[in-house]
Design a protein around this nucleic acid. Structure first.
Lengths: 155, 155
DNA sequence: GTTAGTCGGTTGAAAATCGCAACTGACTCC
DNA sequence: GGAGTCAGTTGCGATTTTCAACCGACTAAC
């Protein structure tokens, strides 16, 4: 029955859920407040059957919930759950990378801190040392969720 | 000639480059030090023709470079460029999300700060206030790279 | 009370992409 | 000279995606 090798990597497990060509863009729209089927569909230019399928998967995965916004006729919109909202660092990281390396440093959209208006950065942060951490100061080790054997663990 | 609507979102621009089912996993392997064609291929189980194609795209995009590691016969390995290494926050964010929401809090692999061994977190950080920022304290605004019109900008 | 329009889909067929297996070329090692 | 490794390429069937048409429930216009 279970000849399936366990996936021992959270990146892969994550991408299995949201790593296709459309899903992260759908989530981006939901973050931006575009929550209705037809709005998402026209905004992304995704085929309707695919949007149906992807939203269904997201709902099944508890990343998105389908909530009615009117009766007669009953219509639903899609909202991020807490699990879905927790993807915001990932989307922010992808966005900041695109700002820097694809948009040539000119961000099409900036995300700012409400309190002070400063544009947000996203960095690995050491909660013990209370400092930002650059890739060369990172090592990996097996965690409680099962380990991966690698030769070189430096990021 | 140019009926193409300009893509006004760095997330989309980023996903156009690395947002298919395999590319981020290939990059993860490169971060882990798996740099050779056959190693990546057997590690991921990706078809060879696809791996050839994806690595070619990554090299064209200057995210990865192809460097010889021996002559006779000449063989190359693939290494992240600075642009590629800059994707580490994105991969880390996806990994941490998977740890928390897919792996049930049990990280298969932990990334730790070399200096102190603390597991790394990834958070939006306000460089002015010097505090971490949660999604509800984030707003968006049009940046110099062209704006997006939205109804609701709250993350 | 028919007609048109909106929203959130479903269905079916064509087109694009993917996965698999076989093959290749340059070399090494025995 | 034969087997093996590595980094691919090629061809083909299987899967996915795209595109267009259609549908049901309802509203609003005439």
């Amino acid at each position: 029955m279970s000849t399936q090798p366990a996936v021992e990597c959270s990146i892969q497990r994550t991408l299995d859920l949201v790593g296709d060509r459309w899903t992260l863009l759908i989530l981006r729209d939901l973050f931006r407040g575009v929550r209705r089927f037809s709005r998402i569909q026209e905004d992304l230019g995704i085929a309707k059957n695919l949007l149906t399928d992807r939203l269904g998967t997201l709902v099944d995965s508890d990343i998105v919930e389908r909530v009615p916004y009117q009766d007669r006729p009953i219509r639903h919109e899609y909202r991020l759950t807490e699990k879905g909202r927790a993807l915001s660092p990932a989307l922010l990281a992808l966005m900041r990378w695109g700002d820097q390396y694809v948009s040539g440093g000119l961000a099409p959209t900036e995300l700012v801190h409400d309190d002070c208006g400063t544009r947000l950065e996203l960095q690995p942060w050491c909660t013990t040392c209370n400092v930002p951490v650059v890739p060369t100061d990172i090592s990996s080790r097996p965690g409680p969720g099962r380990h991966i054997g690698t030769e070189d663990t430096r990021a």
